[in-house]
Write a protein that binds this DNA or RNA. Structure first.
Lengths: 207, 207
DNA sequence: AGCCGCTCTAAGCGGGCGCTCACCGTCAGC
DNA sequence: GCTGACGGTGAGCGCCCGCTTAGAGCGGCT
């Protein structure tokens, strides 16, 4: 396959795991449409035509429009969790690991903003079972960050009164990047990642 | 009128300016529905029935469903801006004013979460002209917070390398409260406001 | 060649959407 | 007591939604 799978910063498109090719094209089209207009404002006809197919083609690869959202949300959360786990599992001080976690998490939310928007803001459009599955992944995301903060407090590196509240605020800050970031803005994902890592280290009173 | 206009913490319902009474009931119903399910997933029949009226009644008071969202967004942004202006205009050090601005802004996003959700997350559902009007209000919101941060830097109270970026992060942190806050959670709006004011003072390196 | 199985399309079904229209009850002014 | 203005309803129009179905095209087996 000679089609370029590269995008911003040489990062590989994260949908390579989706096969066959037509299913992936539909999913990528759905991510773009959902991110631009929201799940409920997007029609199956819009998704299919973005993928260069007829409306009926969607239903060969996906049972419903909701299944598309579910797959996107699942893969996106897996990726986000993977990013945090990698940073949390590294060697180094809690300060280094927290800065690494925040900067890479923010880089993902900014650089892959379309995906992140869908992942973070369309949870309510999922049915109860699918939503429960995603909520469980979010709890794991929270646990990773909280773990680093707790390590820092235990090691005397951080000064944090309310560990759970501060963890929530740190994640909240990162996630909201998907709402406001735009490629036309003055900052690159890397710059936002650096700035935010610095701000978060201040929030936890890192010394 | 003897019906209770009071809600959480004795705060007055902010829709008193909307008249006549039927128009206000429709608007309040729309806020609830939009916050719960999103603008596009809400039907005009749903709004009308929440207000105890027939579907056609909505169109006596509003030209379209979008006009309802526009009115809600406009009034909500006015209120948010008012809160920030009040805090910014107070006497006191930049540190005191920033803490006041953040805690009251966060209290509003948590305490009036349904309104805040609609105001912050349904901007894209507005048409171009209405959206432009709201975007202008958001720039004023940004300017208020940036003004306090600049004052603090000028007075040597704050240590901030990137004023615009830090302002953005502060607002981002506050706004995201509307996404995650729930009345069933462990924290009151007041507690979140206090915690966030403290975190923000750390972000700006207040001394 | 003949057939299967997979992918995709053209056409369209049933239903719910935003919104409209003809009409009705209530009440103030005369 | 009549009338007009106002705020409301019941019925429904035209449209587009998510999704289905019958069948076409085609590559790979035997």
């Amino acid at each position: 396959m000679s089609t370029a799978e590269e995008t911003t910063g040489g990062e590989v498109e994260p949908w390579e795991e989706v096969t066959p090719d037509a299913a992936r094209r539909l999913l990528v089209a759905a991510v773009e449409a959902f991110a631009e207009r929201g799940y409920h404002a997007t029609t199956t006809r819009d998704i299919a035509s973005r993928a260069g197919m007829s409306p009926a083609a969607l239903y060969i690869h996906y049972k419903t429009k909701e299944e598309l959202l579910h797959r996107i949300s699942r893969i996106g959360h897996d990726k986000a969790l993977d990013i945090l786990r990698t940073a949390a599992g590294r060697e180094g001080s809690a300060k280094e690991r927290l800065a690494d976690a925040v900067s890479s998490f923010v880089r993902w939310h900014a650089g892959r903003r379309t995906t992140a928007r869908v992942v973070q803001y369309e949870l309510d459009a999922l049915g109860p079972e699918a939503r429960a599955e995603i909520v469980a992944l979010r709890r794991q995301v929270d646990a990773e960050v909280r773990g680093i903060v707790e390590d820092g407090v235990a090691a005397g590196e951080f000064d944090v009164a309310d560990v759970q509240g501060t963890t929530l605020a740190v994640l909240s800050l990162c996630i909201d990047v998907a709402r406001w970031f735009t490629v036309n803005g003055p900052r690159t994902p890397e710059q936002v990642g650096e700035l935010y890592a610095d701000l978060v280290l201040r929030m936890v009173g890192a010394r």
